[in-house]
Design a protein around this nucleic acid. Sequence first.
RNA 1: AGCCCCGUGGUGUAGUGGCUAGCAUAAGGGACUCUGGAUCCCUUGACGCCAGUUCGAAUCUGGCCGGGGCUACCA
Length: 563
Amino acid sequence: MASEERAKDFIREIIDEDIRTGKYGGRVHTRFPPEPNGYLHIGHAKSICLNFGIAEEYGGKCNLRFDDTNPLSEGKEYVNSIMEDIRWLGFDWEDRLFFASDYFDKMYEYAVQLVKAGKAYVDDLSAEEISEYRGTLTKPGKESPYRNRSIEENLELLERMKAGEFGDGEKVLRAKIDMSHPNMNMRDPVMYRIIHASHYRTGDKWCIYPTYDWAHGLEDSIEGITHSICTLEFENHRPLYDWFLDELGIYHPQQIEFARLNLTYTVMSKRMLKELVEGGYVNGWDDPRLPTISGMRRRGYPPAAIRNFCNRIGVSKVNSTIPFEFLEHCVREELNKTAPRFMGVLNPLRVVIENYPEDKVEEMEAINNPEDPSAGTRKVPFSKILYIERDDFMENPPKKFYRLAPGREVRFRYAYLVTCTDVVKENGKVVELRCTVDPETRGGNAPDGRKVKSTIHWVSAAHAIDAEVRLYDKLFTVEDPAGEKEDFKNFLNPESLKVLSSCKVEPSVKNLKPFDRFQFERLGYFCIDPDSSPDNLVINRTVKLRDTWEKIRSKQGSTFSNA
RNA sequence: AGCCCCGUGGUGUAGUGGCUAGCAUAAGGGACUCUGGAUCCCUUGACGCCAGUUCGAAUCUGGCCGGGGCUACCA
């Protein structure tokens, strides 16, 4: 991605300014801090591209840090998938793999420091009581009766909390700030809660765990982060982030918030994604209909397309929603340059070439990628009995339908000019076409220079490989399922997955491996699904090709289709 | 309602007081084509509103309107 001029977003402008003023000695050090309680999705990709991208551009570093402060929901499965996804996207944290849980001892020391300074206290109020005491958006809260315990008592109680002398929820450590602060986050936020659960990394060493607000700034500070980039919903937490670091008097990174990515026709919330996966509405976290990184990988989206997408949507503080079509545009753009082409027929219609010898087979030369001459050519077998796409034939073609029809001549890609002479029907349904080739047009060009309006794809029946092809569509029927009043699952698209089982593809497809991406000419981009086996080829459709005919057809207001 | 944030074509962005407000995408039209793909060309289309400052405001100031966020011992 050479030297293309990227417009500076507001974050890069802040960084430029910080470098100019020497705020961090010219250093740039970011981090990507996922909580290991779910799989990464395209929204995380935006953050990853931002954080790793900035580090790269400024000659700085970007840490991968797992924010694992809640043993109840986090686990190793997620850690592994997250690392795999980041690597697949093309980023490298080198030797900087960190875990918040590695800082638990240090965090505890800091907490003690705050207690000693009279800035934190142990509270015996229950969760419900704390909530009541907090007040509301308009009414100030009131102070806990335990707020003014002596420093000695607080120290002792905190020590006993850590030692496991109390049950879950019996006590918490709170910062002593201001119960009538207009920012709710400043009304004595909880720093430690008691959770008697074993942590996937620290085991049973701890029964008190730090909350996000308490932990996050410390993690950034400990790692020497310069710019702590997070999403907009943490904006109101920044005063607290700053308060902790200032009261402690330790190294103070700068938190900067940007708007998270929203995409139409999907959901991005971890909770909802989890619900879809665990409720069996989709087939796992890597279901190709999901906006997860693993889903998009399985769907056939190239990492370069995702990176490009993230770099092109920009970074700002405006809440916005990107049409999913733009993502698809980026995917096509990348695949057009890189995907080798093949011929495959999704809905086969049998064609018999009447003037072609029974046992003759010709090897036709086909171009692998017209956008990339270095991709070379391959041979495709042609014989008397072929399959073409049902949609490429119409008995009574409407205006502007250029493909095959009775009496009409079209080109069979890389083969011959073919004329349809007869239509065979069973119970009113077209089951076979009788055609003739012009032997003078081998390769696809007529010596007399006559033109045909259209070129269609085909496969030789005797040589075709059977395949299962999975067609994907939008997961939801509405643009913003999460914004609907009803349960978002009520808007699941029942047609988001269609499985075609008797597709016919050209023989060279058998050399492809799972996750290999390619184009079926005139249809779209596809990839081999990992469910594929030598005797059961399974192919995913990544995205359709742009389809002008589809547009014309819908404008004509007709619903002509043989499908 | 208290606090915080944000308003530029349909969508996403650039613009940092001064050329006809740029780019991408989408949409419409055309050229070309052995993929109705790709590519190329053209067209439509935006500064939320009202004042103020200024020779001059998308840009600075104030007010209004509109949108978003915040009342977990989640992150």
